[in-house]
Nucleic acid binder design. Structure first.
Length: 584
RNA sequence: GGGGUCGUAGUUAAGCCUGGUUAUAACGCCGGCCUGUCACGCCGGAGGCCGCGAGUUCGAAGCUCGUCGACCCCGCCA
């Protein structure tokens, strides 16, 4: 139906008669001449309708409206001198239409395709129109390029691609599952996979050595700007590897993606930071390193303090930590707002101290001893005008709230280098983590994660026992995570014991993996990247929805299709399901 | 489960704080004119349950309460 794409017409085509097809992007009707911008996925080409060339075509072109689909034939020529459009690649050329056909019409549009501030719900409702917009289109074309880079890179590294089931079994200790009722097995349910974790381990035990899959995963949790109920992971597993092997491979992959999507090489190896350092200095296991503003601990300075708040914290073995804001002028209102913000984050309070020419200024300064002030000025390297924010509470609370407060300061005082891409590996995660909900220690990563050293060396100190687990962080967003797995049954059972998971329960939930571990499982480990998130970040977009063609809203609905929806009673009957409408 | 922002022609916004005649603009849409535009231009026109429901009031787009929807955040997300 066409000889060429609109955006691909070039000098070689001058003098040739071509047939092009596409959408009417814009029509400029001068009464005599009518100009039409014909658009397809490759770009725009200008078609001219003139009564001197074809009175019929010119007459009929009066009917053309936005987004009509046409097929047009004419001779390509150079535009007259002075009428070229440097703004588009085909701006030196045009075509006088000798004939054309309207292949389809288009109703009045719900929004203009070149309009920038269209509400997202309207865009999602009419996603097919939204996709015709160049910037939206670009995101999905880049996504397509990314699939190819990943497949090419991993294939070149000896990886095989597999598919794993979507109708599967609930995985342990994870997010809430999406559930699918089984008609053939009344009262039983499949779970959609949160990740192909168990299956990829089975593939290693099956001897394939290196597996990957670009795979949809499902988690029935509340949504965010960077979270969707179904999302895509680049899932990777390798045999006969340790932490450095997996990290090295993944760095190569990320660098390949970065180069294709950003058009410049990525410096590797990527910086690594221990989990404990991340928490103590940045109050987060995914620090944004596009700006500094680290927390500095000053607990030791106040061992002999008379200041009640600090005294209490030290007595309860808490932490006193500070963040220094340099070179910014803060009004009293800024300081009050800062205090307010941290209170909203759950802080008991926030202390600020300003370094002035003649000493420290703060509501609490009168409670501080001279040696404490001096030590603080020295430790924090304070200059005149610097503002110190101090929080004093339990260590975890200080880390958490100061970490979030740090992000607030970075944003508010424009300290973040928004054009930077700061990758970071977080390593040496703790193997366990206390769950307030379950009132016990649970696996921080997942229960198949291998500890550093032998699990048999566990001394009872859950909090300091380290895992062979690692996360990849980009600009404060977790974009991937993985671990080396337990590959021996005795180690795995020991792990379950420490997690207080009963043997029967373990066998019931994932006995097939445990059985396989006893049949010559090789050492193995891997990682999963959040594909949508990486794309979002590398393309500089604000929301994961911008890189997913058909995303869900925050309430999990699809505005295009109307899912989820009620289903006919007949279907419910077949599944033996009764909807009670009541909270059980 | 909790906190917040928003909802006004097809679209994007103004008006709301301080209630009062016909709810304003731009883009789009419809009609007319125009032979070098590319965000074409000029003239004219149509288009509104002010998200929905109660309440307050002589009178509500504007105040109050509820509700629905979209978004952001906390919890949650191994």
């Amino acid at each position: 139906m066409r000889d060429k794409y609109c955006g691909k017409v070039c000098t070689d085509d001058i003098g040739r008669t071509l047939t092009l097809s596409g959408w009417i992007f814009r029509r400029r009707d001068h009464g005599g001449l009518i100009f039409v911008d014909l658009r397809d996925v490759t770009g725009i080409f200008q078609v001219v309708f003139s009564p001197d060339i074809s009175p019929e075509a010119h007459e009929k072109a009066g009917e053309l409206k936005q987004e009509y689909v046409i097929q047009v034939t004419g001779k390509v020529q150079k535009r007259p001198v002075g009428t070229e459009n440097a703004g588009i690649p085909t701006g030196d050329f045009e075509m006088y239409a000798t004939s054309f056909e309207i292949l389809n019409t288009c109703k009045a549009l719900p929004f203009q395709l070149d309009e920038e501030d269209v509400s997202e719900s309207l865009r999602l409702r009419y996603r097919y129109l939204d996709m015709r917009r160049p910037l939206v289109q670009k995101a999905f074309l880049e996504r397509s390029k990314a699939y190819k880079v990943i497949r090419d890179y991993l294939a070149s590294c000896g990886f095989y691609e597999f598919e794993t089931p979507f109708l599967t079994k609930s995985t342990p200790e994870g997010a809430r599952d999406f559930i699918v009722p089984s008609r053939l097995n009344t009262g039983s349910f499949y779970a959609l996979p949160q990740s192909p974790q168990l299956f990829k381990q089975i593939l290693m035990i099956g001897g394939f050595d290196r597996y990957f899959q670009i795979v949809r995963c499902f988690r029935d949790e509340d949504l965010r700007a960077d979270r969707q109920p179904e999302f895509t992971q680049v899932d990777i597993e390798m045999s006969f590897v340790d932490v450095d092997d997996v990290i090295g491979l993944c760095e190569g992959l990320v660098a390949a993606m970065y180069e294709v999507l950003r058009g410049e090489p990525l410096q590797i190896p990527i910086k690594r930071m221990a989990y404990s350092e991340a928490m103590e200095r940045f109050g987060s296991d995914k620090p944004d390193l596009r700006f500094e503003l680290p927390m500095v601990e000053i607990t030791d300075i106040f061992q002999e303090t008379d200041f009640g708040v600090f005294k209490k914290t030290i007595g309860e073995n808490g932490a006193i930590k500070s963040i220094v804001l340099k070179g910014k002028t803060l009004s009293r209102k800024d300081l009050d707002t800062a205090v307010e913000i941290t209170k909203e984050m759950g802080a008991g309070g926030l202390i600020w101290i300003r370094k002035e020419k003649d000493g420290l200024q703060s509501p609490i300064v009168k409670y501080l001893k001279d040696n404490e002030k001096t030590a603080m000025i020295e430790r924090l390297d304070l200059s005149d005008g610097d503002v110190v924010f101090i929080m004093s509470d339990t260590r975890n609370k200080v880390n958490d709230i100061m970490g979030r407060f740090r992000l607030y300061l970075g944003e508010k005082f424009e300290l973040i280098a928004k054009d930077q891409f700061r990758f970071l590996w977080i390593v040496d995660f703790p193997l366990f983590e206390y769950s307030d909900e379950d009132k016990r220690f649970v696996a921080r990563h997942h229960p198949f994660t291998s500890p550093q050293g032998s699990i048999k060396d566990f001394t009872g100190d859950y909090e300091s026992f380290k895992a062979k687990a690692y996360d990849l962080v980009l600009n404060g967003v977790e974009i991937g995570g993985g671990s080396i797995r337990n590959y021996r049954m005795d180690d795995q059972f020991e792990m379950f014991k420490l997690l207080n998971i009963k043997e029967d329960d373990a066998i019931e939930k994932f006995g097939f993996l445990l059985e396989a571990l006893e049949m010559g499982a090789p050492p193995h480990g891997g990682l999963a990247f959040g594909f949508d998130r990486i794309l979002m970040m590398l393309l500089g977009l604000e929301s994961i929805r911008d890189v997913i063609p058909f995303p869900k809203t925050q309430k999990g609905t699809c505005l295009l299709s109307g899912a989820p929806s009620k289903i006919p009673q007949k279907q419910l009957n077949e599944l033996r399901i009764r909807v009670t409408g009541e909270q059980q």
